[in-house]
Simulated scan of single mutants.
Amino acid sequence: MLRWLNLILLILFPVAWFAPLMRAGLLPLFGLSEISVVSGLQSLWETDVFLALVVTVFALFAPILKTLGLALIQFHWLDARALPMVTLLGKLAMADIFLIAVYITLAKGLGVGRIETAWGLYLFTFCILGSLALGIAEARRHR
């Protein structure tokens, strides 16, 4: 059962990357623009390459590599001794959720514009937390 739940994450992560994380606008009178992980990364690559690289690692590479690594362990194509490294990748992916939450909190606190969270943020958070839970369950299974 764990392996199938993990494989579902391979589908859900790309959906979460393109789903709207938040809607942001400068003034309340105008419409809000939807921001996804991918659209945010596109903007970051144009303005701050270092931050774009960090977010790309946390938001894209860490979660998908963790999910793939866990799948390889579950299907016995990778030794279970790799599980601590796979678990570390899951923790790195959680850092991205923290960064997004900090940015939303800062933007709301400044009161310059308007930000609303969207369903993609919840999906992305669910995927990260689900991946962490599956990693913990897999580690317990191997003990």
Score class of each variant (00 low, 15 high):
T117I: 09
P28C: 01
A19E: 00
L78E: 01
R23F: 03
L110P: 03
D48M: 09
E116N: 05
T67S: 13
F98L: 15
E34A: 15
Q42D: 05
F50V: 14
V57S: 10
Y122Q: 04
I97L: 15
A24C: 01
R81P: 00
L65N: 10
F126L: 14
G69W: 10
V86D: 09
L99W: 03
A82G: 04
R140M: 13
L9G: 09
Y103I: 09
V54C: 15
I136D: 06
L83R: 14
F18R: 11
A80M: 04
L26C: 10
F124A: 11
L89R: 11
S33E: 12
L99C: 07
T125S: 14
L9S: 07
T105Y: 12
I35S: 06
Y103E: 12
W119K: 11
G113M: 00
E116Q: 06
G109V: 05
L83P: 15
L12N: 05
A137M: 14
F124N: 08
W45F: 15
I115M: 02
F61I: 08
R81M: 04
T117A: 14
G135P: 03
S43W: 01
K66V: 11
I97C: 08
G69S: 11
Y122V: 08
P28I: 00
L72C: 13
Q42N: 04
G31H: 02
V38R: 08
A62M: 11
M94Y: 08
L132Q: 05
A118D: 04
L92C: 15
V112D: 14
L68E: 01
W119Y: 04
F58I: 03
F30A: 12
L72Q: 11
K91M: 14
L68N: 01
G111F: 01
F98G: 15
L78M: 11
G40T: 10
L88W: 11
T125E: 02
Y122C: 04
A71L: 13
F18M: 08
A19R: 00
A133Q: 04
V102K: 04
I97D: 01
L134W: 03
I11Y: 00
L53H: 08
A59M: 01
L92P: 13
F30H: 05
L32F: 02
F13E: 12
L110F: 12
L44T: 03
V86A: 09
I11D: 06
H76P: 04
T117M: 09
L92Q: 10
E46Y: 00
I128D: 09
L134S: 06
L44Q: 05
F50Y: 02
M94V: 06
F126V: 12
A93R: 07
Y103T: 14
L99N: 11
L29I: 10
T56S: 15
V54S: 10
L9Q: 10
W119M: 13
K108I: 05
G120S: 09
L21E: 02
Y122M: 03
D48A: 13
L27N: 14
A80L: 02
L72R: 06
S39K: 08
F58T: 12
L106I: 15
I97K: 02
A107D: 14
W77D: 03
D48S: 15
F75D: 05
V86L: 13
R81T: 10
T105R: 10
G69K: 11
T125H: 05
F18C: 11
D96R: 00
G111Q: 09
L92R: 05
L41R: 12
W45E: 07
L60H: 00
L53K: 05
L121S: 05
A139D: 00
